[in-house]
Simulated assay, not measured.
Amino acid sequence: MEFESTFEQLTPELSICVTPDHKFGTDAFLLAHFAGHRRKDLACDLGSGCGIIPLLWFRKDPPRQVYAVEIQPKAIEQLKLTVERNGLHGRLLPVLADLKALDGLLPAGQFDLVTCNPPYKVAKTGILSELDSERIARHEVLCTIRDVCASAARLLKFGGRLCVCQRPERLPDVLEAMRQAGVEPKRLRFVQQREGCAPWLFLVQGKRGAKPSLQVEKPLIIEGGGRDGFSEELLEIYGGGKV
C-alpha cells in the first residue's frame, strides 16, 4: 500500500508516521498520560489509529508489550512504518482487526491495561465527514462505547484497568457501558480549557471486577501561565513527564 506520509518527532529517539487521514490531537496525550502505564503491564490500545497512544508510552518506562488494534488498513500500515523506524518489533504489535472480533487474536483475560479514544458522536448525529477515516474516528459507525467496554472486559484480567476519554455529554453512556461490561468506574477527571470554563472532555478509568467507589479528581486545565500559554501540567504531559 502506497501513500504520502511524514514522520513527526515526539522525542529525539521516537517519531511517528502521520497522514491527513490518520493523525493525532491533544486528547491522545491526555489519555496516554491518564492511563498511568507501568513497566510490568501487558497493554492494548483499541481503535489505535496511527498508534499515538502506544508510542507515547514508549517515551518513558514503557509497558512490557503493547498491542495496537485498528480496523483501517492504512492506519495499520502507518503504524508498521512507525514500528520499523523506531525499532519496536516485538514490543509494539499492530493488529488489523475489528475490536468486536478479537477472540483468538489477542489473549483473553491477560491484559493489565486497555485504552480507547473512541468515536465521540453517536451514529447519524452531527455533520458527517466525506472522508471514511474521519467518519469512523468521529462517529459510532463501526463500534459503540458498549462494544469498546465489552471488548476491553474480555481482554482484561481481574483488576485490570480500562481508560477512555469522551465528551462530557456522553458521560452517562460511558459509565453505564462500563458497568454493564463488569468494569467498575473508579477515577474520573474533567478537562477544562481555562479555569471557570465548562469541561470539553473527561477521562475515566474503570477496573474489571472492582467494587463501586468513584474518585473525582481535580480538573486538568489546558491554558495557564506556562510556555506558549499552556498550564505547567499540560507542558509536563506533552513533554512525557510524570505529574
Results as ranks from 00 to 15, higher is better:
residue 29 F to C: 08
residue 41 D to I: 01
residue 65 Q to S: 04
residue 98 D to C: 13
residue 145 I to W: 11
residue 13 E to L: 12
residue 194 R to N: 15
residue 173 D to F: 02
residue 192 Q to M: 14
residue 199 P to C: 07
residue 96 L to M: 11
residue 27 D to M: 02
residue 201 L to C: 09
residue 135 R to T: 03
residue 74 K to R: 15
residue 173 D to Q: 11
residue 85 R to E: 14
residue 113 L to A: 09
residue 49 G to F: 02
residue 168 P to F: 00
residue 87 G to I: 01
residue 99 L to N: 01
residue 11 T to D: 06
residue 149 C to R: 08
residue 228 D to N: 14
residue 116 C to P: 01
residue 228 D to A: 15
residue 96 L to F: 09
residue 59 R to W: 02
residue 241 G to Q: 13
residue 63 P to D: 12
residue 174 V to D: 02
residue 104 G to P: 07
residue 118 P to E: 09
residue 182 G to K: 01
residue 77 E to H: 10
residue 51 G to Y: 03
residue 190 F to S: 13
residue 160 G to K: 02
residue 152 A to G: 08
residue 56 L to E: 11
residue 197 C to W: 12
residue 159 G to Q: 08
residue 183 V to F: 02
residue 217 E to H: 08
residue 146 R to M: 05
residue 198 A to I: 01
residue 222 I to Q: 14
residue 37 H to E: 04
residue 159 G to L: 03
residue 46 L to C: 08
residue 134 E to Y: 00
residue 122 V to M: 09
residue 198 A to W: 07
residue 65 Q to C: 09
residue 34 F to H: 06
residue 16 I to L: 15
residue 50 C to Q: 07
residue 181 A to V: 02
residue 82 T to Q: 11
residue 93 L to Y: 10
residue 59 R to T: 01
residue 179 R to S: 12
residue 155 L to M: 00
residue 226 G to Q: 10
residue 144 T to K: 10
residue 24 F to C: 09
residue 20 P to R: 11
residue 211 K to L: 13
residue 103 D to Y: 06
residue 110 Q to H: 08
residue 103 D to N: 12
residue 85 R to P: 06
residue 123 A to G: 10
residue 36 G to T: 05
residue 40 K to W: 10
residue 168 P to M: 05
residue 208 R to Y: 00
residue 179 R to T: 09
residue 99 L to E: 01
residue 182 G to M: 03
residue 220 L to K: 05
residue 52 I to N: 03
residue 146 R to V: 05
residue 79 L to I: 07
residue 237 I to K: 05
residue 196 G to W: 03
residue 199 P to N: 09
residue 19 T to Y: 09
residue 186 K to C: 04
residue 124 K to E: 15
residue 162 L to E: 11
residue 203 L to S: 07
residue 223 E to D: 10
residue 231 S to N: 13
residue 165 C to P: 00
residue 153 A to Q: 04
